[in-house]
């Protein structure tokens, strides 16, 4: 794999994960447990889709086959999507929504933190702006995980269930593949060992404070999103998200 190929692939992963998680959060519009949460959810979603747009634009320039950011977001099918499986998991209850956010935020935070020092200046620039937003996302989701874990009996049970349900998707966040390694070696992407170490450290710290039990380190992990092998959920997400672009392929402006 050449470095350029790896870079295109890597950018799509960053973009797609942001996009799909943003889409999941959009589904909650008008359905949050409090008006303050309504604001916060849409705020986080807005950040994520905004970041996705930045990554897509850069990816589109490198791919250079006539597709723009919108085409990459709205005209690729599930097997071409490179998002982490974690991001496509359904909202379920608010503990699952927050657990998914938390596991992703920890990965996202350390990834972006490292990307601010990327040898690729464009990436470093996008990451610097995104890091400010994601620092807030992480603070917020960590706080909710602690509130739920150490709140009421019911919230503790729900949060522990969420950790158990989502645990099998955490491996993909921190298990590097060839693309990740090529990016790390080029000084473009994060040091993969360090990322895994940081992720585990922070997740354990927060879960401990939240009186929750993490899954086993050697638990079976469900992976494949980074290579386009997704859970059944993604097809439905895209069917909804891409509806207009697919139903009206001749429309060039919206």
């Amino acid at each position: 794999m050449t470095q350029t190929e790896a870079l295109k692939e890597y950018l799509l992963r960053l973009a797609d994960s942001d996009m799909i998680l943003g889409q999941r959060l959009c589904e909650l519009c008008g359905k949050a447990p409090a008006l303050e949460e309504e604001m916060a959810l849409m705020n986080v979603a807005l950040d994520l889709v905004g970041q996705a747009r930045n990554w897509y634009e850069y990816a589109a320039e490198l791919i250079d086959d006539g597709r723009d950011a919108d085409k990459l977001a709205f005209r690729r099918d599930a097997h071409e999507y490179r998002n982490l499986l974690m991001t496509e998991q359904p909202n379920e209850d608010y503990a699952v929504t927050m657990g998914r956010q938390f596991f992703f935020d920890v990965y996202h935070y350390f990834t972006l933190k490292s990307l601010t020092e990327s040898s690729d200046e464009r990436i470093a620039g996008i990451a610097a702006k995104a890091l400010k937003e994601v620092t807030y996302h992480l603070r917020r989701s960590s706080e909710w995980v602690k509130r739920f874990g150490d709140g009421t009996e019911e919230s503790h049970r729900r949060m522990q269930d969420a950790v158990d349900i989502l645990w099998r998707f955490t491996g993909e966040l921190i298990t590097p593949d060839d693309t990740d390694r090529v990016m790390a070696e080029a000084g473009i992407g994060p040091d993969t060992d360090q990322l895994a170490k940081d992720w585990r450290g922070m997740v354990n710290e927060v879960l401990t404070q939240a009186t929750l039990t993490p899954g086993a380190e050697d638990a079976w992990m469900y992976m494949g999103g980074k290579h386009g092998e997704h859970t059944e959920h993604l097809g439905f997400i895209l069917a909804e998200m891409q509806f207009l672009q697919r139903a009206y392929p001749d429309a060039t402006t919206w």
């Binding site: 959009c26 519009c29 604001m39 849409m42 807005l46 909804e240 998200m241």
Partner: peptide, 23 residues
């Protein structure tokens, strides 16, 4: 009524605009 379309907005720009409006 806007949440009904925010998951189906046709472009990144329109999606972001609608999300900001809802917020």
């Amino acid at each position: 009524p806007e949440g009904n379309w925010v998951t189906r907005a046709p472009t990144l720009k329109r999606k972001l605009q609608l999300m900001a409006k809802i917020q």
